[in-house]
């Protein structure tokens, strides 16, 4: 799952839609809690299926192209390049570029080869002002395709700032980084600066360092928990120092910033270790 979170952060604004299908027997509440602890922001579903899948164990990944056709079924490691290539090709297709101008050729080839689109936007924008009509037309179309997802996300962040300012803030920070050198980045930066002083956002930002400590402890203890499959007396003995630190951090977090998202996420992680 960490790879999905990473791909979603990097490519979600460039046309990638991520969906998690939980396929083991587990209560929905537990799956939801674990998803939150993993920092998953995309939809997580249960009880669904992909017809004719090979049922070769988990994790198993299905990559569908922009026309809905199945491009690949396989393990996540096998799928990464297919995902990156499909996203790049879809962006070029959306721009309607078939015979790229010589000044745009390398950029188009890089996108189609799966190079990160995040580095491309700032390169394309100046070309959209070219005096050459063909270059101007193609660069403008590619710039529009590259920014379509970012513009949509920025609007969603603005629309959601009253009801869910923390998600809006996080979106704005990511947009400012992903679209550096573009109007989206500037507008997203203004939005994140404004939201940083919002009461709920400010509290969550102050709580995040404690959450990070709990995440580091989780990383250190997770292999041990996997080996013992539950919090056994042996596990408690082997990780007593980390469990004590986690208990103290969680208590401090809940005492100081009880209602923050960071505190809820930390509680979900700590629950795996029976730390309350």
């Amino acid at each position: 799952m960490p790879h999905l979170v990473r791909w979603n952060e990097e490519l979600g604004d460039f046309g990638l839609a991520m969906i998690g299908f939980h396929v083991q027997d587990a209560p929905a509440d537990e799956v939801k809690m674990k998803s939150e602890a993993l920092g998953i922001t995309f939809p997580v579903l249960q009880g669904g299926d992909v017809p004719k899948s090979k049922k070769e164990g988990i994790p198993r990944m299905f990559v569908f192209g922009p026309d809905g056709e199945l491009l690949l079924e396989g393990r996540p490691a096998e799928a990464e390049q297919a995902v990156r290539t499909a996203v790049g090709k879809a962006l070029v297709k959306a721009a309607g570029i078939k015979d790229p101008h010589s000044s745009l050729k390398k950029i188009v080839e890089d996108l189609q080869a799966g190079k990160p689109p995040v580095a491309t936007v700032a390169k394309v924008l100046p070309l959209a002002k070219s005096a050459d009509p063909k270059l101007k037309e193609q660069a403008s179309a590619l710039a529009a395709a590259l920014q379509a997802g970012g513009n949509k996300r920025l609007q969603e962040a603005r629309d959601g700032q009253k009801d869910d300012p923390i998600s809006s803030y996080d979106s704005a920070v990511r947009l400012a980084a992903n679209f550096k050198g573009t109007p989206i980045s500037q507008q997203a930066g203004e939005l994140s600066n404004k939201l940083r002083s919002e009461k709920r956002v400010a509290a969550d930002l102050r709580a995040r360092p404690m959450l990070e400590t709990i995440k580091k402890l989780d990383l250190a203890m997770a292999p041990g928990l996997k080996a013992t499959e539950s919090v056994t007396p042996e596990f408690k003995k082997a990780f007593s120092a980390q469990l004590k630190q986690m208990t103290n951090q969680l208590a401090q977090l809940n005492r100081t910033y009880a209602d923050t998202r960071a505190a809820k996420e930390a509680s979900a992680i700590a629950a795996k270790y029976e730390v309350k």
Partner: peptide, 19 residues
């Protein structure tokens, strides 16, 4: 819940996973 109309034109990745 994902809607097919919203997913049109996007590259969609579905992962089977478990907690």
């Amino acid at each position: 819940k994902p809607e097919l109309d919203d997913l049109k034109g996007r590259v969609v990745v579905i992962e089977f996973w478990g907690i």
